[in-house]
Design a protein around this nucleic acid. Structure first.
Length: 727
RNA sequence: GCCCGCGUGGUGGAACGGUAGACACAGGGGACUUAAAAUCCCUCGGCUGCAAGGCUAUGCCGGUUCAAAUCCGGCCGCGGGCACCA
């Protein structure tokens, strides 16, 4: 229960918190959310923004999608940062720093705006009108919808800034609720012509809208919305100040930054969207943050000898809030620096902290230090990491950061800074949701095993309970459904979703195992969908899997009963089929295409069931089948293996290897197309030269019939694949 | 709004640019049964034909190619991620 400690810095930040989190009193759902300042602990992941972004290129065995999501999350942008000189601002606020990714639109500026959380806004808060505005701006929800629909509101401070390119030109400074303190400098210059938000704001408050550029060949005209072309697009500057009159946005930005740097009013900077990782939680169930608050020394890291700080067990959750805050003794401690009475930090760490380095801990689980150098060097990295896509950003990015931090603190070797060599994101097992409504209008969810699904006249009807109604006696289906509905017996079927206990769309694995065994459950889950996709759980699918495994067992006992000297037919073909099965199943498993591997096993089993070969190849085939099945269905595989006289466990023996000679057929069947349509096929020896194949194809009677004497323009022979005759 | 991804039978899904629908589920038919279950066999994209077969078909429209589910462009639909990020 300890975590590596990296860059402990208390940071004052504005965070969003609801009442429950702040004072532990209210726990009403939908309680008003307000914004307050809390002291929180952060990991300075932003120091690694560039590194975490550029290293994504090296993760060649990660899905492109995940790398892209991380790149977008890190969000690198290049822009200009510069300072406006202010007129009429309080003492200490001589300049206003702003950041823009479109410095080429500088001449389209019509105002400057600061975040309600900007230090300047706070400095002005003594003015009751400002205070009232800030209170209003801080209201409002934090959900995506709330933000989307939130109206833009602003307050003109009366302060003015001088335009960097023309000191005589002054712009008003507004406080605006849509400016974020967390990004850039918390202040912007507004260019309504080329930013939709600024456009909306300028329209509302009647500020000038002046284009800096027009689309190539477009005329200057009043605009209905902001003109925001891609930076790669060429535009004609009507209020340009750097570079060519017509150039791409990228060129415009580059020349504008150069202009600012040459003339000394600003500099090009790179910003990242990635914010520091706030790890403080006002909860019990996280690792305690090993920090002591001392009245004389301030914030002091706990002495190493006292680590790990363990959570107390005698806590109560009767009252909402963090029990650590109320614990009588846990909070009390002595300052590791001066020895006086002090208080422990009661915030605990985000549980993502634990999941960010467990893989490293696994390399030396019983060590008294977080990791052991030799063990970490030996075991790291994780060769293949498998998890849901929902971890694409947070967990996987935090882990990448944490591995780097652990390297810096000497807990991991340099080779382990990218902890996961290969990543596979698997889908989920889903099921539809069955819902009814109780008398009070509350939703009631039903387990799949507690409803009955049946069809009447192509209508799928679901009722609670396990007794289907007498379907034959229903003649008016609509009336029947209405009656069910009136009695509250019509179950609403909600489309398939990730299995969740609260929605009761779960199938208990224990029930499946009790009914069919664990092999069946594993076989079915892997058989239908590729693993990166979600699988819909169906009872019939599980039954089908069970039937198939029963067939395998029946086949096993039949082959087991064969007399040792039985001479059959098709020994060669069966040996080929066996080799092909080994090849296909191996490639399927190695390529994470378990559904294809299982399809091959079905085909091989069917071939074997129909075969009438001699005893030796039959036994060889069933033993191979056991081996190939063992990753999916270990129990039946071992039974079959042992029944067929296999030595030891098949899980312990080597994986079968296909004889390459048996994988190559001596003759191949080639389809013949005429103008791209399949018309015939011929069998030819596999190494027959193309010219011979051509002759044979043109001599084929179906081909002759279809050509009907037309001259052949061209003939394409793809060896081993296809022949196309063009007329 | 921005960034990704995906659209193939009734269903889950196969298909290095080369025989579309492998392998299954469901359905239909049959055998065995007094009957049912279980098991086994046949059939199963659509249209057409007694049949052999033919035509048509991978969301829609167009293009590249001897050949397109696959590559390119444009629509439509669905899903995921991000989001007052200046």
């Amino acid at each position: 229960r300890k975590a590596a400690v990296v860059n402990w810095d208390p940071v004052d930040m504005t965070v969003l918190a609801n009442e429950q989190v702040i004072d532990g009193k209210g726990w009403r759902s939908g309680a008003a959310v307000e914004r307050r300042e809390l002291t929180q602990w952060f990991f300075k992941i932003s120091d690694y923004s560039e590194e975490l972004l550029s290293a994504l290129d090296g993760l060649t065995n990660w899905p492109e999608k995940v790398r892209l999501m991380q790149a977008n999350w890190i969000g690198k942008s290049r822009g200009l940062q510069f300072a406006f000189d202010m007129v009429g601002a309080p003492a200490g606020f001589e300049t206003l720093e702003v950041y823009t990714t479109r410095p080429d639109t500088l001449m389209g500026a019509s105002f400057a705006a600061i975040s309600p959380d900007h230090p300047l806004a706070k400095a002005l808060e003594a003015d009751p009108k400002v205070a009232a505005f800030l209170a209003q701006a801080r209201l409002g929800g934090t959900t995506a919808e709330a933000l989307e629909t939130a109206e833009k509101i602003g307050f003109d401070t009366g302060i003015r800034v001088k335009h960097p390119l023309d000191p005589a030109w002054e712009l008003p400074v507004w406080i605006a609720n849509f400016i974020l303190m967390d990004y850039g400098t918390g202040a912007i210059f507004g260019c309504p012509a080329h930013d939709q938000r600024d456009f909306d704001f300028a329209t509302k408050y009647r500020l000038p809208i002046k284009p800096a550029f027009l689309g190539e060949g477009m005329a200057d005209a009043p605009m209905a919305e902001a003109y925001v072309p891609m930076k790669s697009e060429r535009v004609t500057y009507v209020r340009g100040f750097a570079g060519a009159e017509t150039q791409t946005g990228d060129e415009g930005v580059a020349t504008a930054i150069a202009h600012a740097e040459t003339n000394g009013y600003g500099k090009g900077v790179t910003k990242f969207r990635l914010r520091d990782w706030g790890v403080s939680r006002q909860r019990y169930w996280g690792c305690p943050i090993p920090v002591v608050h001392c009245p004389t020394c301030g914030v002091v890291p706990e002495a190493k000898a006292n680590l790990p700080i363990e959570l107390p067990y005698d806590v109560s959750f009767d009252i909402p809030g963090n029990p650590l805050d109320r614990h009588p003794t846990w909070r009390d401690c002595t300052c590791p620096k001066c020895g006086t009475k002090a208080r422990r930090e009661t915030d605990t760490m985000d549980t993502f902290v634990d999941s960010s380095w467990y893989y490293a801990r696994f390399t030396a689980p019983r060590a008294t230090t977080p990791t052991v150098a030799e063990e970490a060097a030996y075991w790291m990295n994780v060769d293949q990491y498998i998890g849901g896509v929902e971890h694409a950003i947070l967990h996987l990015l935090y882990s990448r950061f944490f591995a780097r931090a652990m390297h810096k603190t000497g807990h991991l070797p340099a080779a382990a800074i990218e902890p996961f060599n290969a990543l596979f994101t698997q889908g989920m097992v889903t099921h539809e949701i069955y819902k009814t409504t109780d008398a009070a209008g509350r939703p009631v969810y039903h387990l799949p095993e507690d409803v009955t699904v049946f069809n009447v006249a192509d209508r799928r009807i679901v009722v609670p309970g396990n007794v289907p109604p007498p379907v034959d006696m229903i003649d008016d289906v609509d009336a029947f459904i209405r009656a069910l509905s009136d009695e509250g017996l019509l179950v609403e079927v909600i489309p398939s979703a990730k299995m969740s206990k609260s929605k009761k769309n779960v199938v208990d694995p224990m029930n499946i195992i009790a009914a069919f065994g664990a092999d069946t459950a594993r076989w079915f889950v892997m058989s239908d969908s590729p693993p990166e996709r979600d699988v819909e759980w169906t009872a019939s699918g599980a039954e089908a899997a069970f039937k198939h495994l029963s067939r395998v067992w029946a086949l096993c006992s039949r082959i087991g009963d064969m007399p040792a000297d039985h001479k059959g037919e098709g020994d060669e073909e069966l040996a080929r089929a066996t080799a092909r099965a080994i090849d296909e199943v191996t490639r399927g498993i190695e390529g994470f295409a378990f559904n294809k591997a299982i399809a091959s096993l079905y085909a091989f089993t069917n071939t074997l069931a129909k075969a009438n070969a001699s005893t030796a190849p039959m036994k060889e085939a069933i033993r191979t089948l056991a081996k190939l099945m063992s990753p999916m269905t270990p129990h039946i595989a071992e039974e079959v293996w042992s029944y067929q006289g296999g030595a030891g466990l098949c899980a312990q023996g080597p994986w079968p290897k296909a004889d390459p000679a048996l994988l190559i057929d001596d003759t191949v069947t080639l389809p013949i197309q005429i103008n791209g349509k399949r018309r015939a096929e011929i069998s030819v020896p596999k190494d027959m030269p193309a010219s011979e194949v051509e002759k044979l194809a043109l001599a084929d009677e179906d081909v002759i019939r279809f050509l009907a004497g037309q001259p052949v323009k061209k003939i394409i022979v793809v060896p081993g694949r296809i022949i196309n005759v063009v007329v």
